[in-house]
Design a protein around this nucleic acid. Structure first.
Length: 258
DNA sequence: ATGGTAGGTGGCCTA
């Protein structure tokens, strides 16, 4: 199974980049974030033409997550099953694809340390962990893929000095991310490339960050141990960040042996 | 020169 995650920063604005990318890379399952579409506005036809069935959880202006699969799409669900009420934002959607339980997640950005949205971000990680405990099995095949808005280590940003007082790198965010991993999920990229620095998945549009190679590794494919053990090739598709009207994120692609 | 880009929406907010 070739699985990819990509924060497209508006699927409406990005469809003309996403369609040829799907045809070229040919992932079996794609987790999308920041569709910025209402539920009914998802371009199902464009994906069906490429052989993908999709589940979309969207609200309109912001957020919005989807899973597209050409290996089937069963038991779809939106939001959390932690018994703590509905998340006001459309940030997580679930589906089972060829026996693998898949989540596409868009973790809150946080905006600023100490901001209400920062507390919401930390709480959101807690809800994700609670959901996993409630309805998932770490001994099964589970993958949680998406934009986590956390750089797990200092070496996952281009220069830690540039992130003083910033979100994405604070200890509480990293601990919240580690608590999710601690349920039984492996950071597949870091396991495969334990010594690699300077490979990122996001580059700010401003200040020519991409061309200066000044990015952050904040998009992750987390997999339970049995699934992570079957991870083969792992690639950040930097080509998708180049050219006309790119997203500010590049896709992360992971091949899992069956 | 203390900025800058992009996407949404609607006359600013989010990233």
């Amino acid at each position: 199974m070739r699985l990819a995650t990509w924060n497209v920063n508006s699927l409406r604005a990005r469809l003309e980049r996403v369609v040829p990318w799907l045809a070229g890379v040919a992932p079996d399952v794609v987790c999308l974030q920041e569709t910025k579409l209402a539920g009914d506005d998802f371009p199902h036809r464009a994906f069906e033409a490429l052989g993908y069935d999709c589940v979309h959880h969207g609200e309109g202006r912001w957020n919005g997550v989807a899973i597209c699969s050409r290996l089937g799409l069963e038991d779809t669900a939106a939001g959390f099953a932690d018994g703590a009420g509905e998340d006001p934002d459309a940030r997580i959607v679930w589906a089972t694809c060829a026996g693998v339980r898949v989540a596409s997640v868009y973790v809150p950005n946080g905006r600023a340390v100490g901001h209400d949205h920062y507390r919401y971000k930390l709480a959101w990680f807690g809800r994700l962990r609670a959901h996993l405990e409630a309805v998932c099995d770490p001994a099964g095949d589970v993958v949680v893929a998406g934009d986590f808005n956390v750089a797990p280590e200092d070496r996952d940003v281009w220069a830690i000095e540039a992130f003083a007082e910033s979100t994405h790198v604070t200890q509480p965010e990293r601990e919240a991310w580690q608590a999710v991993c601690g349920w039984g999920l492996v950071d597949t990229f870091r396991r495969r490339y334990p010594g690699v620095d300077g490979l990122y998945t996001f580059w700010d549009y401003q200040a020519g960050r991409f061309h200066k190679r000044q990015g952050m590794r904040i998009d992750h494919v987390l997999a339970t141990e049995p699934l992570a053990a079957r991870a083969g090739g792992i690639v950040v598709d930097r080509n998708a960040r180049k050219g006309t009207k790119p997203s500010d994120h590049a896709p992360l692609v992971v091949d899992f042996a069956r």
